[in-house]
Design a binder for these strands. Sequence first.
DNA 1: TCTTTTTTGAAACAAACGTTTCAACTTGGC
DNA 2: GCCAAGTTGAAACGTTTGTTTCAAAAAAGA
Lengths: 289, 289
Amino acid sequence: MTQFQTLEDQLRAAMPTMTRAERQLASHMLGNFPLSVLGTVATIAQDAGVSAPTVVRFVRKIGFSGYPEFRAQLHEEMGERLASPITKHEKWADRLEIDHPLNRFALRVIENLRQTLSQQDLRTFDAVRDLLADKSRSVYLIGGRLTRSIAEYFTTALHVMRSDVTLLSSQPNTWPPALLDMSAGDVLVVFDIRRYEPSVQQFAELAHAQQMEVVLFTDQWVSPTAGVARHILTSQIEVPSAWDTIVPLIALVESMLSALQDANWQDTRERLERMERFYEEMLLFKRMR
Amino acid sequence: MTQFQTLEDQLRAAMPTMTRAERQLASHMLGNFPLSVLGTVATIAQDAGVSAPTVVRFVRKIGFSGYPEFRAQLHEEMGERLASPITKHEKWADRLEIDHPLNRFALRVIENLRQTLSQQDLRTFDAVRDLLADKSRSVYLIGGRLTRSIAEYFTTALHVMRSDVTLLSSQPNTWPPALLDMSAGDVLVVFDIRRYEPSVQQFAELAHAQQMEVVLFTDQWVSPTAGVARHILTSQIEVPSAWDTIVPLIALVESMLSALQDANWQDTRERLERMERFYEEMLLFKRMR
DNA sequence: TCTTTTTTGAAACAAACGTTTCAACTTGGC
DNA sequence: GCCAAGTTGAAACGTTTGTTTCAAAAAAGA
């Protein structure tokens, strides 16, 4: 539609061929760029002291089909200027063979991840980190059919950093007895994405009734468990397939692990070293047989 | 009109009192802030997957008289950030909180994912898809300490698409007897990232000796199991923390699932529908007790 | 100065917009 | 398990918006 880089350049370049009223308009636009161009045709016309038709004729003259297209262009440019590194859309997709299923899927996964991370409330994130870093609280984890593996991964990694971490079995009938050992102030981490599982929700409610702190990792449609959750971390999980992606959830979990590690690096390193030693001794033992 | 500093804070603060559709909307707005909020009610509604009335109700709920006022507020905030090139940068940098661990970690994860997917050999990917789609071959999956959860996830999802899928237990002493049931041409999917586990490698070698097809998901340094693997899919997994990220591995696995589903959609859908029915009947059964 | 051409904005218009209504649906309480 | 309360989106509504028309005003040319 245009060979110019930015709208601003485009406005300046058009100046010489403009009439009196149009120059007055362009001058006003450039003087209050880009705030002046956010409003409606009527607003701009009034602020610049010209009529609405002049505004329309003007944007036509510099190459747009109409005012909506002009504003869309401006929005796009503003978006680029305002975008954070995470929010930013990198055009790396161009290099890929775009038609291959792997790449079509991958682009959507990255989009989900990007959105999930950029919308994350940092205060919630920090609050959860503090809860999990608090060694006076025991931590319990639970997940549904597809999310149990996330809970398992989280558990394995958490074990490196602290004790009193328990993954609840996949059999709901073992949960009530497990409740016996949980006390007020303990943390229950719940993973629940659609289709949400009633048994998981019921358990979270029981835990909440016992004054436990419930942390919920869920999808953008939000599990009903949210009702009893102290902290909620949501992920975008929709991809073009019959099921959803857990990638953003994993990314959140790993970010949390990384933050926890930073929060208590001294202890973590010690535990890591001890674990390494134990692993080595296990191997030695095996070799001696 | 409001006691909050920015629109973004206002959106987040409202989250707890929101309904499902409203949360979905707020989530979308925050995920693509501020670009998403520049458009019309209809645009936002469609992008967020809710109806136009929901958008209007939402902005009313957080304290605006209507959508025009909401957009005016956003324009004002954007104007403040964009107006002066000098003040712009510091103000925006504040909000970015780029130094927050979540954001630092997130950028690296996205970079890993990007590299993993763009380096992927599509022929290998397709070959593995064909192996897994071949119903005359049984599929077995195995993983290490941290990768077992990936194998578990893959297994759960594969079960939806085909039968004869088996996740090997986490106890190595159960593996030799399991070998009895495996025959030439069957597929063994191995997940192994550093630090590579000798027991997993040994098992892969045994399987290879039995003429099984070994598919290896590993990291950029490549597990020693590669020696007996027919197909190798590598992932970039290095992040600024004491351990690695499995996000690219999960993304590969999910892409594979998506490709498999496309390859045999008829069967998959049938199985999905049957599964849905079974789940429903299970729930009915529970309710009837 | 007079005519022709161009420019401009008030008013009318059509399209798009935000908003309201209402019936279907879901959720929570007994 | 039923009913009440709350939530949701399709359709209808009135309003605002961008656009076109057209006649008046300004500018250019003779």
